[in-house]
Amino acid sequence: MKIAICIKQVPGTTAVEVDPVTGTLKRDGVESKLNPCDLYALETALRLKESCGASLTAVTMGPPQAQSILREAFMMGVDEAVLVSDRKFGGSDVLSTSYTLAQALECAGPFDLIICGRQTTDGDTAQVGSELAELLHIPHAANVIKIRSLEEKQLQATVLLPGCRMQISMQLPALIAVDESIAEPRLPSYKLKLATADRKIKLLSLKDFTDTDESHYGQSGSPTRVVRVFPPEHNTRQERWEGSGQENALRLAAFLEEGKFLQNPR
């Protein structure tokens, strides 16, 4: 049983601002971290490794610096790691990111199961998992809250849908995106850090893929274009209350009373 976990390096902070005068981006600090939702994908995989003896490969697409999150995955107990990196992948949108990952997973695989986190905290689209499954021609389910069993050709899971929990069984290979309620992620282990310090990270770039046509990757392979970026608008109708706590409380109570917010709406 081979399991791939798709993870991503995201900015440690989303504190990026646009200078309204020059239109340039200002970003304080450049530190990065593992996307928090991916910790749950890793934990899910690690538990499957413990219960079913699966071998785990963490895969990330990004610049060379993204190796640090693969090291972190090693420290949690992942067996292999793949960095998908090429400057020709720059400017990828959802489709072209998914296509690149699909090529990489075919190249590093085959995998029986692919596990993703719910979403990233920088893109926030929650769509790459679904597109990836489509491009790999495999079924997928998102919002997985429980794995009930994993066998050679079948996965039984519980997914959360609006208003219900649904028990499903999926034929493998398949892709799942896990909800944060699935398991509490473990911390990286110092012992594993030492034990995996020399472990090699596999590098994949465009030349390793089956489809090496540059026009399918990066911005050329992206149907969407960013026309411009600009700062969000701020509210203009504003008032400021700077009195004491007691004064503000009285004023606020009067405001809520006047707006009929204290009455039961029913």
Binding site: V94, L95, S98, A126, S130, E134, L135, L160, S222, P223
Partner: peptide, 20 residues
């Protein structure tokens, strides 16, 4: 929850753009 699961699949099938 539902739209986010099949709109991307359909967009990828048509190899077209999706803006979330």
């Amino acid at each position: 929850v539902i739209g986010r699961q099949f709109a991307p699949r359909a967009a990828a099938r048509f190899r077209t753009g999706l803006t979330a």
